[in-house]
């Protein structure tokens, strides 16, 4: 066998191997196609079966529609709940605000109650003036002020108690004359609009409150200066002024009557003692 024959034989073997390999791959590919065909047939069978039982694309659409409706309903409920929460929060804020207001009113009422109680718990004239002074300092926050009463003999308004200023510095006033006299004549309270900008003038006080028993004015309270920390009047101050206008007047009047009756009783007791000895 020549060298050329041997080379031809070897090339044939190589081609035969290549052919066998190709054939094997073709056989495997055919097997795969058959399997895929089988799988797709089975899938078609499944879908047909599902459609026959009422499932399938039509039921998916219906299910989607129901789910969308449910989602819409839940969204609406969520909005309602959120709205209700906002409403409750607003109510809660209202209650909190109201609570603070009631607490403030409660505190103010306590102040008024105690001021009133103190005014009516004593019968001594000087003690009544002392309580009025304490109320004006501690509850209203005034630093310079005076309590003025109408003298029954002279008919003039004069200071009977003062704080921060001398009694002698407070002018004597005839009812009807000047700011203080006008208050005594009309019975109407006087307040300057801007307490912080007020400049002290003893004839024109920052505040002038009439002391009234029914419609009769027996005196006035004049305020010339507030404590350094007191910049303006608050609503409870006006309540206190109203209380002072009535209750302080009554307390002063009662204590004077009591003093007079005590003096008379003492005088009469003296006479009786003289007569019975």
């Amino acid at each position: 066998m020549s060298m050329d024959d041997k080379g031809d034989e070897k090339g044939m073997h190589v081609r035969a191997d290549e052919f066998l390999q190709l054939f094997k791959k073709g056989a495997e590919f055919t097997q795969d196609l058959l399997k895929e065909n089988e799988r797709l047939r089975y899938r078609i069978f499944q879908l047909e079966e599902q459609q026959r039982k009422g499932g399938g694309p039509a039921s998916f659409v219906e299910e989607n529609r129901l789910l969308a409706a449910r989602i819409e309903e839940l969204e609406r409920e969520k909005d309602e709940i959120l709205g209700r929460i906002r409403q409750i929060e607003a109510e809660n804020n209202d209650f909190a605000t109201r609570y603070v207001e009631i607490e403030e009113e409660n505190n103010n009422l306590a102040n008024l109650y105690i001021a009133s109680y103190q005014l009516h718990s004593i019968l001594d004239f000087d003690d009544v003036l002392k309580v009025i002074t304490e109320i004006i300092i501690n509850l209203i926050g005034a630093e310079e002020f005076a309590v003025m009463l109408i003298d029954e003999k002279t008919g003039l308004l004069g200071a009977v108690a003062a704080e921060g200023i001398s009694l002698d510095d407070v002018p004597k006033v005839r009812p009807g004359e000047g700011t203080i006299g006008a208050i005594a004549a009309t019975g109407e309270s006087h307040f300057v609009e801007d307490p912080a900008g007020y400049v002290r003038d003893l004839s024109n006080p920052m505040v002038c409150i009439p002391l009234k028993i029914k419609d009769q004015v027996i005196g006035v309270i004049v305020i010339y200066k507030l404590l350094i920390q007191k910049k303006a009047f608050v609503p409870v101050d006006y309540e206190l002024f109203t209380l002072l206008a009535g209750h302080a007047a009554t307390a002063i009047f009662s204590s004077r009557l009591y003093s007079d009756s005590e003096r008379k009783r003492s005088t009469m007791q003296g006479f009786i003692n003289l007569l019975t000895k």
């Binding site: 505190n107 306590a110 102040n111 105690i114 001021a115 109680y117 103190q118 309580v131 304490e134 109320i135 501690n138 509850l139």
Partner: peptide, 11 residues
């Protein structure tokens, strides 16, 4: 001050 004492105590 009795008035202030009473007020503080009341509070």
């Amino acid at each position: 001050s009795p008035t202030m004492r009473q007020l503080i105590a009341f509070t």
